[in-house]
Design a binder for these strands. Structure first.
Length: 155
DNA sequence: GCCAACGTTGGC
DNA sequence: GCCAACGTTGGC
């Protein structure tokens, strides 16, 4: 299967591109939305990730990552008392999944949501549409390439 | 901090 | 299976 592309949201207070640059890689647990989970289950090692900072000033894509491990059961769903605990998920029949991502690059400047919205070719991206709260979204190669070009552009 | 949008839950 | 109530996301 050829490489696919995704956009993953995170609040920078929880985990930012600088944290990923420092750590090199991280696990992406805690997704508790079925649509996002279904997208995560399609992720494969080597897929490209637009790392998006949500609830930020401004919000936008702050860098790139890649999937370093495809979907596997979210073990935090089994930890009683943990904020990601979900009794509906068992080891025999996991409900939730996580992936690992690796740092690729940090953009010199954020590609803001405003920029995404006003850039030709990105009109169909979910993140540019009103009310789109999905934290894991698919992107096309064309969209990914456009965002990468914007992110690397010198101002 | 507000609140619109949206997903989930649960009573019926 | 409908839908009101509720909780969460995330832009602003």
């Amino acid at each position: 299967m050829s490489r696919r592309y995704w956009l993953m949201k995170c609040e920078p207070g929880a985990y930012a591109i600088d944290d990923l640059a420092r750590d090199g890689h991280t696990s992406w647990e805690g997704v508790r939305n079925y649509q996002a989970r279904n997208f995560m289950r399609e992720m494969q090692e080597g897929d490209g990730v637009l790392f998006y900072a949500s609830n930020a000033t401004p919000s936008g894509v702050t860098g790139l990552a890649s999937v370093s491990r495809g979907a596997y059961p979210d073990e935090f769903a089994w930890k009683k008392g943990h904020k990601y605990y979900d009794p509906a998920s068992t080891r025999e029949a996991p409900v939730w999944y996580m992936v690992d991502i690796a740092f690729v690059e940090r953009f010199p400047d954020i590609v803001s949501l405003d920029t995404l919205k006003s850039t030709k070719g990105l009109e169909q991206m979910m993140v540019t549409k009103k009310g789109s709260r999905l934290s894991v979204q698919p992107a096309t190669k064309a969209e990914y390439d456009i965002v990468v070009r914007l992110g690397r552009k010198k101002h």
